[in-house]
Design a protein around this nucleic acid. Structure first.
Lengths: 117, 117
DNA sequence: TCATGTACTGAATTATTTTTCCATATACCC
DNA sequence: GGGTATATGGAAAAATAATTCAGTACATGA
């Protein structure tokens, strides 16, 4: 896991929240896990544009931050599952609001940024 | 403005929304501008940890994205003001929710990540 | 004249994130 | 044996974001 040289300023509530979800995939991961627990391979099928590697890295951070819970089943072949934690679940209203905002303004931005000028 | 080699996937509503506010300072800028228009130097006083340079860069992106409006007064010495646009204002509920979440969980994360282990 | 403030920008450097590729280990099926 | 699938992770490269520093240009006030 990347060890920041410049730590996040936890005293700023806005930046604390942003820092927990501001990667390319974390909000999508929370959205996927909001209803069902998933195995890494299932998550990759749900988010095919994210490589398994980046999902693995971001899940690890989210587990470390306490947003996601990981269960390892001691089986062969290996099996593990990720689920949203109670803390992570408190972020769902924010994820929801972002999802709705995106849906409402998607057309605007597709129009605006389609076709490279 | 940075020209991405890998464009944002606008068809994913969540990633669209995230991409507009996921920098280190954009959510703070929106929070500052939510009530009053501000000059660049005032914004820098309000967010002293952000260099004028990074505020300038991010404001430019936000103007380009339509979240912020810039007014230039043709005076000497130069004067300009930034204000939140109607589109930007629709993000305020999300900023608000993130702000509240951060306030509620600040102590938890300060406890968790204080003192490097 | 010199320092200060105002808005802005170029360029180089550093910091961080994401991608890509490869490797481990095990079991199942053909 | 060879292909598939499972979960995970090291290492390096590429992409992106943020910082630092210097410089433009003009006005005001000491």
């Amino acid at each position: 896991m990347y060890k920041r040289k410049i730590p996040v300023d936890l005293s700023c509530p806005l930046r604390l929240t942003i820092s927990l979800i501001d990667s390319k995939w974390k909000s999508c991961i929370l959205d996927e896990l909001r209803h069902t627990r998933m195995r890494p391979s299932e998550l990759h099928k749900a988010l095919p544009e994210a490589t398994p590697r980046v999902l693995d890295l971001q899940l690890k951070e989210m587990v470390n931050d306490g947003l996601v819970t990981k269960t390892i089943y001691p089986e062969l072949p290996p099996r593990s599952e990720y689920s949203i934690s109670p803390l992570g679940a408190t972020l769902i209203p924010i994820i929801d609001a972002m999802l709705r905002w995106g849906e409402e303004h998607q057309e605007l931005f597709e129009k605006k940024y389609r076709d490279p000028e």
